[in-house]
Design a protein around this nucleic acid. Structure first.
Length: 1136
RNA sequence: CGGGCAGUAGCCUAGGUGGUUUUGGCAGUCGGCUUAUAUCCGACCUAUCGCGGGUUCAACUCCCGCCUGCCCAACCA
């Protein structure tokens, strides 16, 4: 078995050319099988992986056009089959289970897919680098309406009748083909962004094996009594004989303004004291024969009103008498006009009131399926939250067969369903004098007339309103309860809620909020779709007695049907052929025509991707269950996340399935939408779609990945701004590339740096031990953040380490150590230190920015193979020195203050100054500053000769000032807070000093005594007087900016050194080149300064000869520099 | 009718058991460092923290209502 390699120790390197797998096996120390060596023809050529030279420079394109470098690595990884080999090597390691959510390949991948894939890749790479085996099986979602619509469009046909005419077999063949349209795009983009996935062996939801697994699941649902036939209310076209999807309803021109009847109807209350009726309003009188109930809002007030009956023209008002009606208070004025209120009650008080049905006709009932109807509930008042007061009467007529909300009310109260209008949109029985067979729209008038005749019509009008029409044939649509198959998920609601609590949602609010709420309101899952291209439902129903059989495998079907044709496949129309006699009644068992909701397909992937429970698939699925980690976009909450959860919850209850109890996925990372840079949703119409290829081509995949991961919170909508990617490139990658360049250039110099030479950490200078410590701390930090799925945090920690600590502090502070003088132990030490830091960076960033990490790794430690096959370093706690890290933080803070002071004193950093003074309020800071290390760093960095003073702050320089600590004091003094704060504001510095020394203080505030403890106040220092000080509240710093001849001379010398080195560079000299140097100063004082600091000029510029005061030969590179009032200096140099 | 999330400077962004002048960045201006043409540092610039109420000594933070945007679910008398 492999085991972690010891971190931070030089790896042994094979001096001889390594066999081409050694790069993988060496680092893993595993008995890796010889995967691919023969079968895949790997290694016919020696991989480029082995061809890198140690400390080789990165190509210039790395910064300018990162795509070039990345594309080369993509090719190398592919050619050397790095991913496959890695997977093979990890085969026996403990698993980290990841499930890939299947995309549809009939659309192009967008930038949001890059985001989700980056998250998935980063986590999988990280776990792999922890030594786990992460199966990364690709998958394709291939069924569904969008596929069908695409093909319809392509064929120039539309609607089910036309599909039937075209031929279902051919139609489905086209669908099967069309889902691969963008397969290449997906695979290539995934590879390009470094998303490692096994595309050789993907799961495909239309595959026979996949479908068979899905069947098996459905048959188990059925067997458990969890699948049933019911009704589903959806917009329906009577002429096309089909329901419309919400998508189709969204087509332009579907909703059209039409003039419809608008009728108010009286429902006569049974046993009402005033002979009162309930007043309801509808724009669809044809639904009235199917009325089953009335709905009122539970909390709105309703009035019992007396209103005059309408009179004939010319007759006196009220002469026809009056009537009494119930109506919502909010609607009474608008509907009734003048009226007298007899009673007011909230809606819920009306619940249970019974009324006379409007029509006596025998309207047929239909079986709702989901519940057993209770006839007692018919023709009564119920409450429903959805009732509004915006129009109508606040009393809503309920025809459950023709309205979704109505259906819900009926379901809740187990009401029977009446259905007067059938599937063709025609009356199925004569009612109210209207003939059977009348088209529903044409029944309105007759029905209204009938009601009027019988005195049940209160008012009739025509109202223009928006009504949906079939987008194909223009027929008015109606909502209609169509037969549908359901899964009884509501029966598993409690279990699903319980299991959901064990899922680690990132962010957590998705789990408790959006997903949790959804589960709380769980209703049965409608799984049938009356379409063609989908997994056919494996349910056979007897056309005689209605007996049902669910088929769970191909073999079972074959047995039932007595053989299958040779061209049989698991799709329509072939699947609709097998039939057999019903065991109960002898009639024929025929398959339900519907296909499956394709969300079930994707939710079944944990099982179906392995062909569970058939053959070897059973064990494979069990080994990959449950998922440790999944990640998709927020839009999957009610999609994939739900279907996985629902199916998984059911599957766990199966006695013969060996799936552990618990959540189906343990961690679910949810990413938000990606918007354009102005926060507008990307859409083709607006043309603001970001082409992932363009972004990756311009900035490189690493920069895009890093940008997506590190900017903002993962789950929030993210604005995709190319300027942000550019910034990532410049700041992080640019700095890293430069750090590498710095290291590599000097490491190759002269005899060169050899990591194999030992350099005990304890013997290195403090600044080295500081970086070593920071390296170890960063390992701890980044590993913890990655393990915690805090990818953004990991990015930020690495950014800080690379940019602030490695580049702008360690390298900058130690620049000269890397090139000056001979190779000494000290020089070795700084190389070792930087080497280890870069090594850690390469490893830690590998999951996040796989290309840059690889590029550096292969040059840093050649012959150890891909960075992605390494194990992450283990931090060595012994090398972490907290005190040293704290001390350095203090140094940095002081340096920053010092620089600010220099700035204000107009003293450039090259001008040495005499002294810096520090007052510290706390002793620990003072102690840290007194260490030689800290003061040495500060003085060197600030170019100041000495500490003028370094002492406890006694308030002598700055005024001590106390401010109330509201948080603490507020609890103590409450209402006196304001006065106490004011009193503290005016405290004398001596009193503040008392407090700081730890003494308490007694105050008189508004006649009350208040004891002040040190923790009740924040003590700050206020600058005062003419001394320019800098303070952060704890430290007070000022500098002595006075110059004398000596300091000036050194300042000029340093200025000149800088100019000489700039000239060296301009002249194209290499850093290791030695020079002959001429320096000629224009004035007396300058010349004196130059000769005084001749040694400085020589050593800092690698000059072997220095001539002062004479003109240089004309072959020398020359430059003259003005040093202000003092004159100018002419420089000349030449390589020796 | 619903469920969820969010509204903080010209722009983006952080903040939480309420505590006074809240964070970081971008853009802009000026200056500094660098034998690493990447960065970095300093100064300036800048918010009645969506609106209205309430609770409190104290509200960006908690409560109520509203407005706006987005996502999901819907599309109904």
């Amino acid at each position: 078995m492999w085991r972690p390699r010891p971190a931070q120790k030089p790896r042994s390197r094979a001096k001889t050319a390594a066999p081409h797998w050694s790069w993988l096996t060496a680092s893993l120390r595993t008995s890796a099988p010889k995967v691919g060596r023969t079968a895949h023809g790997v290694g016919r050529t020696v991989g480029l992986m082995a061809a890198y030279e140690r400390f080789a420079p990165l190509p210039d394109s790395a910064a300018v056009r990162p795509a070039a470098l990345e594309e080369q690595l993509v090719a190398q990884w592919r050619e050397e089959r790095v991913f496959e080999a890695l997977q093979a090597a990890r085969k026996d390691a403990p698993r980290f289970v990841f499930w890939e959510g299947p995309p549809t390949a009939n659309g192009k991948p967008g930038i949001h897919h890059v985001f989700a894939r980056t998250i998935k890749d980063a986590v999988c790479r990280f776990r792999t680098m922890e030594g786990k085996y992460v199966v990364r099986k690709a998958g394709w979602d291939t069924h569904g309406l969008p596929v069908e619509l695409g093909v319809e469009k392509e064929l120039g046909i539309s609607g089910k009748p036309q599909i039937e005419a075209y031929g279902v077999a051919q139609f489905n063949a086209r669908c099967r083909e069309s889902v691969w349209r963008y397969k290449q795009d997906w695979e290539q983009l995934s590879e390009r962004i470094g998303y490692w996935l096994d595309y050789a062996d993907p799961y495909v939801t239309y595959d026979d094996a996949y479908v068979e697994s899905v069947w098996n699941l459905l048959a188990r649902f059925h067997k458990a009594g969890m699948a049933y036939r019911g009704k589903r209310v959806l917009p329906y076209c009577g002429r096309c004989g089909t329901g419309l999807s919400s998508h189709e309803l969204g087509q332009p021109g579907v909703y059209r303004d039409v003039l419809d009847p608008s009728v108010h109807v009286r429902f006569q209350v049974v046993g009402g004291a005033h002979g009162e009726s309930l007043l309801a309003w509808t724009t669809t009188p044809w639904t009235l024969p199917s009325n089953i109930a009335l709905a009122v809002h539970p909390d709105q007030p309703y009035v019992l009103a007396r209103v005059a009956l309408p009179v004939a023209k010319g007759a006196e008002k009220g002469s026809a008498g009056s009537e009494v009606v119930w109506i919502a208070q909010a609607r009474a004025q608008a509907v009734l006009g003048e009226h007298e209120v007899l009673d007011v009650k909230p809606g819920k008080a009306l619940a249970g009131l019974r009324y006379q049905p409007l029509f006596s006709a025998d309207v047929p009932f239909v079986e709702p399926g989901a519940w057993t109807p209770d006839p007692q509930g018919l023709h009564a008042v119920y409450t429903a939250e959805y009732v509004t007061m915006e129009d109508g009467t606040g009393i809503v007529h309920q025809a459950a067969a023709y309205g979704v909300d109505d259906w819900e009310v009926a379901r809740k109260h187990r009401l029977p369903i009446k259905q007067a209008v059938g599937a063709e949109g025609r009356l199925v029985c004569a009612v109210g004098g209207v003939a059977q067979g009348t088209f529903f729209k044409e029944a309105d008038e007759g029905l209204t007339e009938d009601l009027k005749r019988r005195g049940l019509l209160f008012r009739k009008a025509k109202d223009p309103h928006s009504y949906p029409h079939c987008w194909r044939c223009d027929t008015p649509l109606f909502y209609y309860a169509v037969p549908a198959w359901y899964l009884r998920t509501s029966a598993m609601k409690e279990r699903m809620i319980e299991l959901n609590k064990q899922v680690r949602w990132i962010p957590p609010e998705i789990g408790s909020g959006r997903f949790g709420e959804w589960l709380e309101n769980n209703i049965d899952w409608n799984i049938s779709r009356d379409r063609y291209w989908g997994t056919p439902l494996p349910f056979w129903v007897c056309d005689g007695c209605g007996a049902e059989e669910a088929i769970g495998s191909r073999a079972e079907l074959e047995a039932k049907a007595g053989g299958l044709s040779s061209t049989f496949d698991f799709h329509k129309p072939s699947i609709d052929e097998p039939h057999w006699p019903c065991a109960q009644c002898g009639h024929t068992m025929r398959r339900t025509k519907s296909v499956l909701d394709c969300w079930f397909d994707s939710g079944a992937m944990p099982y179906a991707q392995w062909h569970w429970p058939f053959g070897a698939g059973r064990a494979q699925a069990e080994a990959q269950f449950p998922a440790d980690f999944i990640a998709e976009g927020l839009d999957q909450t009610r999609g994939w996340f739900y279907t996985l959860h629902a199916i998984g919850t059911f599957v766990q209850s199966l006695p013969d399935a060996n799936f552990p109890q618990g959540p189906v996925y343990k961690t679910c990372v949810v990413n938000g939408l990606i918007l354009d840079k102005d926060g507008v949703k990307m859409s083709k119409r607006l043309g603001n779609i970001v082409d992932p290829w363009a972004a990756v081509g311009e900035h490189g995949a690493d920069a895009v990945r890093w940008y997506l991961l590190s900017s903002g919170a993962t789950h929030l909508p993210k604005r995709f701004d190319p300027a942000g990617i550019l910034e990532v490139r410049r700041k992080f990658f640019g700095t890293l590339i430069n750090s590498w360049k710095f290291f590599a250039d000097y490491a190759r110099l002269g005899q060169g740096f050899d990591p194999a030479r030992s350099s005990p950490v304890a013997a290195r200078p403090e600044i080295d031990r500081w970086l070593v410590s920071r390296t170890q701390s960063t390992i701890v930090d980044v590993r913890a953040k990655l393990a915690d799925y805090d990818l953004a945090g990991a990015c930020r920690a690495l950014e800080q380490f690379v940019v602030d600590e490695i580049s702008n502090w360690y390298i900058r502070r130690n620049r000269t150590r890397f090139w000056k003088g001979e190779w000494t132990a000290d020089r070795d030490a700084c190389f070792h230190t930087l080497h280890a830091a870069l090594e850690a960076v390469a490893l830690l960033m590998a999951p996040l920015a796989p290309f840059m990490a690889e590029s550096i790794w292969l040059r840093l430690t050649p012959n150890t193979g891909s960075v992605h096959a390494q194990l992450l370093p283990q931090a060595q706690p012994a090398l972490i020195d907290r005190a040293l890290e704290d001390s350095m933080q203090l140094v940095v803070r002081l340096v920053e203050m010092g620089r600010a002071l220099r700035e204000r004193a107009k003293r450039g950093i090259r001008q040495p100054l005499r002294a810096v003074h520090v007052r510290a309020s706390d002793e620990s800071a003072l102690a840290l500053l007194r260490t030689g290390f800290a003061s040495e760093q500060i003085l060197a960095e600030l170019n100041i000769k000495a500490f003028g003073s370094l002492a406890t702050d006694d308030g002598g320089v700055c005024r001590l000032k106390a401010k109330a600590n509201f948080r603490v004091l507020g609890k103590k003094v409450g209402g006196l807070m304001k006065a106490v704060a004011a009193a503290i504001d005016t405290l004398a510095p001596e009193s503040v000093a008392q407090l700081r020394a730890g003494h308490t203080l007694s105050l008189q505030v508004e006649g009350q005594r208040v004891e002040l403890a040190p923790e009740d106040v924040d003590i700050k220092v206020e600058t005062s007087g003419d001394l320019d000080v800098e303070t952060d509240g704890r430290l007070v710093v000022w500098i002595d900016a006075q110059l004398d001849e000596e300091l000036l001379a050194e300042g000029w010398a340093r200025e000149v050194v800088s100019r000489i080195n700039a000239l060296r560079k301009d002249a194209g000299l290499e850093v290791e080149d030695r020079i002959a140097l001429y320096v000629q100063a224009s004035g007396e004082r300058l010349a004196a300064a130059m000769s005084k600091h001749a040694e400085l000029l020589r050593s800092e510029t690698m000059a072997t000869q220095l001539v002062l005061g004479s003109p240089a030969p004309s072959t020398f590179a020359q430059a003259t520099h003005d040093l202000g009032a003092e004159g100018s200096v002419t420089l000349a140099l030449q390589k020796t």
